[in-house]
Write a protein that binds this DNA or RNA. Structure first.
Length: 404
RNA sequence: GUGGGAUUAGCUCAGCUGGUUAGAGCACUGGUUUGUGGUGCCGGGGGUCACGGGUUCGAAUCCCGCAUCCCACCCCA
């Protein structure tokens, strides 16, 4: 038997596809309310796109990409995340030169060659939005409120963690200070932290090792090192969230794993899905457009992991809907087929191809979750009528076929 | 990539220290004296016990390997 590849799942069970499509419906409609419109970009992109955006020091690019040389000798890879492709499209269409505000949302599969576990797949689905052209921190707040709206509508509880990563005025200096600090305690920290010092020094701050944590208590704090602009925007953001009743926790150790983030960084986490607890994450990336050869354009966005959210969604109660048609005599089957076909012009309608007794039809209609069970037996066939039972209200009537 | 656990019917699982044709519940399917479902009763189909080796008179059961899933690390959505 041929099986799907490791960490790549089918979404076909009733419980799964209903949650999946329901999520997309809710998330898309919220995004549209915020003025975003749909964008679709290719799953396959030039590898250098991700090297230059996500960053070569990140694990995503460093060891998790599905990368290969295609038949035209191009170095390509399956997208590991969604932002880079949208930014590429934005620049390619010269929207950076057009000016103004551009807001997009997308959803689709992402690929990372990781060891699968709960909430972590090799092919997984993200829903994300990207906003270009606004440096106002109000847009950052709108992003966060949009995620909150989606999660609230889906009945998903969350904690919001917030941080500011600074910009090119304050971050590099902070990073230098932090590296100096780490070097001062380097002989006492764990091997992972030594490695992090080289690749992504800020990551040492959320090391799980208690011994390291004790040492880092005296480490310089990023939030204390913000420049004036970053600090005032961060304060403004907190005020907006307060005013809109969005609860948050400041997490000075929150670091986004993708290199392109600056200033606002946020993560929505759930305590109910195991160790892969991040259900949405995002932030500002004001430098990314110019890193990818576009005109400097401020931007902010987020992405949500659909599989991680699926089991948390509170599905609305399903109501009976549509028609089930059945015949009790072989002679009536043809009539049932054409009647069903007519009904389908305006309603959901299914039918049974075999003549069955009434009890069997009612069972089938119930199983199909139909609202109406409609039967033609010998009596009805003779009189040109159809028997209709409302399974919800438990009412039944016999109507003329032309009035059905 | 590193450690630990699991893998028996479509699903959830039972199967004691190795011993005849491998079980249950749910699901599916058929019937149930006159045309009434979700909630009665009786029947039926469905498993090379993940896969490959080994030990043994005999393996779902013990040993080795491998794959996948799960948990943790790591990383992130």
């Amino acid at each position: 038997m041929i099986k799907s590849l490791r960490g790549m799942n089918d979404i076909l069970e009733e419980d799964e596809y209903k949650r999946f499509t329901y999520f997309l419906k809710v998330a898309s409609s919220v995004a549209e309310k915020y003025g975003f419109h749909y964008i679709e970009t290719p799953l396959l992109e030039e590898t250098s796109l991700f090297k230059r955006s996500v960053g070569e020091s990140s694990d995503i690019v460093g060891k998790e990409m599905y990368q290969f040389i295609d038949k035209g000798e191009n170095d390509v890879c399956l997208r590991p995340e969604g932002t880079a492709g949208v930014v590429r499209a934005f620049i390619q269409k010269k929207l950076d030169r057009a000016g103004g505000t551009h807001r997009f949302f997308y959803y689709g599969p992402m690929f990372r060659y990781e060891r699968p576990q709960k909430g972590r797949l090799r092919e997984f689905h993200q829903f994300g939005v990207e906003s270009f052209g606004l440096e106002s921190v109000y847009e950052d707040a709108a992003m966060i409120m949009m995620v909150a709206d989606i999660l609230n509508e889906l009945g998903i509880g969350y904690r919001l963690q917030l941080n500011s990563l600074g910009d090119q005025n304050c971050m590099p200096q902070y990073r230098d200070n932090l590296v100096s600090f780490i070097e001062s305690v380097e002989d006492k920290i764990c091997e992972d932290c030594k490695r992090r010092k080289e690749t992504n020094p800020i990551r040492v701050l959320d090391c799980k090792n208690e011994h390291c944590q004790a040492l880092y208590e005296n480490a310089p704090k990023l939030l204390n090192a913000l420049c004036e602009n970053c600090e005032s925007d961060f304060n403004k953001l907190k005020n907006i969230l307060d005013a809109n009743n969005i609860a948050y926790e400041i997490d000075t150790n929150l670091v986004r794993g993708l290199d392109y983030y600056s200033k606002t960084a946020f993560e929505f986490v759930s305590d109910n899905i195991g160790s892969q607890s991040a259900i949405a994450g995002g932030g500002r990336y004001d430098r990314l457009v110019e890193f990818l050869d576009g005109r400097p354009t401020p931007a902010v966005g987020f992405a949500m992991g659909i599989e991680r959210l699926m089991e948390l969604i509170e599905m609305p109660q399903e109501k009976r809907s549509g028609y089930y048609l059945g015949a009790m005599d072989d002679e009536a089957v043809d009539l049932i087929i054409t009647t069903t076909q007519k009904k389908r012009k305006s309603d959901k309608a299914t039918c049974e191809y075999r003549a069955r007794n009434l009890k069997a039809h009612l069972k089938n209609a119930d199983k199909a979750n139909a609202r109406y069970c409609c039967i033609v037996g010998s009596n009805e066939l003779e009189n040109g009528t159809i028997w209709v039972k409302d399974l919800e209200e438990k009412r039944e009537e016999t109507v003329k076929l032309e009035d059905f």
